[in-house]
Each structure stands twice: as C-alpha cells, then as structure tokens.
Design a protein around this nucleic acid. Structure first.
Lengths: 142, 142
DNA sequence: TATTGTTATACTCTATAACTATA
DNA sequence: TATAGTTATAGAGTATAACAATA
C-alpha cells in the first residue's frame, strides 16, 4: 500500500494494535468472547477473588463499565460475584469459567505465538520491553 | 500496578497503543483535531489530490466513514473536495488547511520525540521494524 | 468522607446494507 | 459490472454524572 505515514511510531503502533486485535478476535470468536472478556477471565484466573473495582483498575476499565462486563459473564455462568464486605464483591470463576479459562489460555498462547512469529527472530526479545516502555507509568484509567 | 497480563504481547501492545493515543490527543486537542483527522491532513499533505476512497484505503477507514470525516474538515475550511471524474473527487488542503498542516506536523514531531524518549536508547531503532512487522500481512519472519 | 457498585446516558469509532451515479 | 460517494443505522467501547450503601 506504500503508506506515507508508515514512519510515524504512534501511527504504526495504532495500526499494529488494530491488526493484532483483529487476529486475536478470530481466535476468541470460537468461544464467543471479546478480548476484554478474555482478559478479565485471564485476570481472575491469576488473581481469584479480586474485587470488581480492582479488576477494572488493573485492566484500565472504568467502574461503571465493569458492571455490564461482569454481568454478561455471570449470565453465561462463567463467573460469580461474591459479596465480600457489603460494598465490594469478589470475582471468582465457576467450574464452567475454569474450563473456559483453559480454552482462553490455549487461544491466547496460539495468538501470541502467531504474533511473535511475525517479528524477525533477532528482535523478538525487544517486543515486550519496547511496548512496556510505550505503555508507561501514567496509565491510570480511572 | 503489577499487571499479571503484562507478559502478553497482544495485551501490552493494546495498552501501549491506548496510552500513546491518549498522549497524542493531548497534543492535538490544542488544534481541536482528532488523531484520525490529523492523519488525514498529514496524508493529503503528502499526497495532495488523492481520492477520498484512496485516502480511506490507505488509512484503513471505510468509504462510508470517510464521508463525515471529510465533511467535517471541509466545514472547518481545512480541505476542499474537487469533483474529479464525476464519481470521484480529489482532496486538497485549503490555505487554512496548509497552515494547519504545519501545526499538525509540529505537534506530531513533539509527540514522536516524546514517544521515542520513553524507549531505552539502544532499542529505539527497533521500534518501527517491530511495529511494522506486527501490522503487516503474513510474512516469513526469521 | 472516600469508595464500591450501580444506572442512565452520550459520544466516538467502526461495520453493514442499500441507494445513486458514473467509469 | 465494478467503483465512488452517500445515507442511515447498528454495534462496540468508552466517558461522565449521579445515586445508594458501606467502610
């Protein structure tokens, strides 16, 4: 296509993200999951019992937007919201949710391999360090 | 923050893109421009007279979504749509649009410098190659 | 008083389908 | 017949404001 903006890091970063998310969506669509939903399942898998608000802070999702997200996954029987103190609630995976977790991990692993395979071998070790540096510390999405 | 998903390239890529776009938006808000609008202005600056559909193809914007985009910039007096053949039209910057172009270039340059400054010096040369590889079509990368 | 969960709402971006006209 | 521009619309994702309950 010979994109004249291809030398702009911010532009190429955005295009790379969109393209990669599109490929991820193909992997996840078999399980009828959005990337955000999959990331929440992975997160609970690592940090069972964390709060809805905590999950939102980690994933960069606002409190208000966590509601329909968790509600949808709960309606599908993938997670439970356990009242913790009266004003906060723990998120835990159900048995079905745990089975979904292993499927998500498989899909994500395949996707990550696919993603890294695009990068020339000698540059692969730099992918995470560069992206982490670009992500940066000022990422409070609340 | 200690994000347990921070080792996933796709996840970190998305977070990096969102964070970088947020910083870009800060630079562009002074000119009341969205990133997409700025990218179109930059593109026309490089390829004056290209078609609306061509611009959409290059930027990854659907034909239907180019309409309100160009209409808005035209309403602001930044660009003109010149009937070319009867079914296609050239996009060209007006005098005001050209002045905006230089402002956009300044903002983008500042943003790029800011972005690259986040990356450790010895990794900066790898940013564009890695992101381009992640963006692009399937290739044999090794 | 600050935080959590919630509801309602609005705005942006993107996607699709259908229509007109033109090459 | 394929393409360019257009319109209308629907779906995500994200943003804010306000409220009740609770620590």
């Amino acid at each position: 296509m010979d994109d004249p903006l291809g030398f702009l890091p911010g532009y190429v970063l955005r295009r790379a993200s969109i393209a990669t998310m599109g490929r991820l969506h193909q992997h996840l669509s078999a399980h009828d999951l959005r990337a955000t939903e999959a990331s929440l399942i992975l997160l609970i898998g690592e940090r069972a019992g964390l709060t809805q608000s905590e999950a939102g802070r980690i994933l960069g999702i606002k409190r208000a937007n966590m509601v329909p997200l968790t509600a949808k996954l709960e309606a599908r029987g993938l997670l439970e919201r356990l009242q913790l103190t009266g004003r906060s609630q723990e998120l835990v995976l159900t048995a079905i949710g745990k089975r979904m977790l292993t499927k998500v991990r498989t899909a994500i692993t395949a996707h990550e391999n696919e993603t890294m395979a695009r990068v020339p071998k000698d540059l692969r070790a730099h992918v995470i360090p560069i992206l982490t540096a670009l992500w940066g510390p000022d990422t409070d999405a609340n």
